[in-house]
Design a protein around this nucleic acid. Structure first.
Lengths: 211, 211
DNA sequence: ATAAGAAAATGAACATCGTTCAAATTCATT
DNA sequence: AATGAATTTGAACGATGTTCATTTTCTTAT
């Protein structure tokens, strides 16, 4: 398989069209999955529907993607990338030279996270519902770690005494706390913080954690 | 059905044995489900296995319980009850007359929650993974609301200025924050707080929120 | 005690899934 | 135009939760 492909490097044009078709199929598949997840939730995402969406036989899905989990991981990665862009455009320009500025930037990051979760609820849920059998691939791990700079950098200004390790732990604690409030809040569980109070409570907690 | 049973109150002995058998079956079913969840996780809980466990035909399950979700709700309720007992025995005796005492009691409640989640991981996860189609029954709602007194009472001492509504919201915020830290932490996700630092970080956040 | 009738238990059948794989089809090269 | 490889197909498989006609058990009245 891999050796065969390696033996035909001169025929670049043909190899390219084949590979490009696969890539196009993959992107169509990811797009179809995203659309269906947004419209009906991850739970009702069905292999047969996706195959029909992109005009491929049922079994053809498994030529494009290893299995359903692999597809969900790709969707997840794309969602995380969009979250990163949202954080960058919404908070990247905010100053954080002073401690007070850094705190407000952290509040802004948290609010951006809330807004993103609200506007992408099914896709956002999927990220945390996904339970992989195999270990997380490196590229997916990098996706997640990169996002933490949006928390780590302001936090470094706010808590300058903490060493790198302690700062990492503290960033994760703060993220998990805010995530918990949003997660339970947007699930509209019985014991959830009411939706219209989420932003205030998140700001309160973030500021309290920074004092 | 219900009218029939109501029409035979004098035959208490017979009615009782029939009803008692159902109750015994139900309890056996719940116990079997708990055991299987603890051993292999909620995901691999199968109707056929449970039927075999309690010595009933596959279809017989649906004479005992409406469907799988109803069973999971019963298991969930039982787990919440045990969590309530754990909180009561571990923190019920701690003083909370002064503000400092109330804060430490809140930290103790959070640590009890962490310990319970650790020791009952699959059952504890199930509570939050459960997504019901039908609305939560009242008795299940009461199960959850009752638990919040363990947070609300100390919090009332710590934040005496807050009215009842604000206090409820604040209690839910604090719970959700701590829950988020534990939830992500015990899932051992990439971005989780490391397990051995969970207790410290939870204590830090709880105290920070109370200053 | 026994038969009739009600209640409960049974397990085969159904609809839905994700996934596989032998067969058919398409494509590229000679 | 033919040959051989690569790709696509969709029927089939094994699980799974749930249903329901049939069988079995139990209760009650004679």
């Amino acid at each position: 398989m891999a050796t065969k492909t390696a033996l035909t490097p001169p025929k670049a044009a043909i190899s390219a069209t084949t590979a490009d078709r696969r890539q196009a199929q993959l992107e169509a598949l990811i797009a179809a999955a995203e659309k269906r997840i947004c419209e009906s939730g991850t739970l009702s995402l069905k292999a047969r529907d996706l195959a029909a969406d992109i005009g491929v036989a049922l079994g053809g899905l498994y030529n494009i993607v290893q299995d359903m989990d692999a597809l969900l991981l790709l969707v997840s990665s794309r969602t995380l990338a969009r979250l990163g862009e949202a954080a960058q455009t919404a908070t990247g320009h905010l100053p954080m030279t002073t401690r007070a500025e850094a705190i407000e930037r952290l509040v802004a990051v948290a609010h951006t996270y809330l807004a993103f979760a609200r506007e992408n609820l099914p896709l956002w849920r999927m990220i945390f519902e996904l339970r992989l059998d195999s270990p997380l691939p490196d590229w997916a791990a990098q996706d997640q770690l990169r996002l933490f700079r949006h928390i780590g950098e302001p936090l470094h200004v706010i808590m300058p005494d903490l060493d790198t390790l302690a700062l990492t732990v503290r960033a994760r604690t703060l993220f998990a706390a805010v995530h918990g409030i949003i997660s339970i809040g947007l699930e509209e569980r019985l014991i959830a913080v009411p939706p219209q109070k989420l932003a205030d409570e998140i700001a309160w907690l973030t500021r309290a954690a920074c004092q």
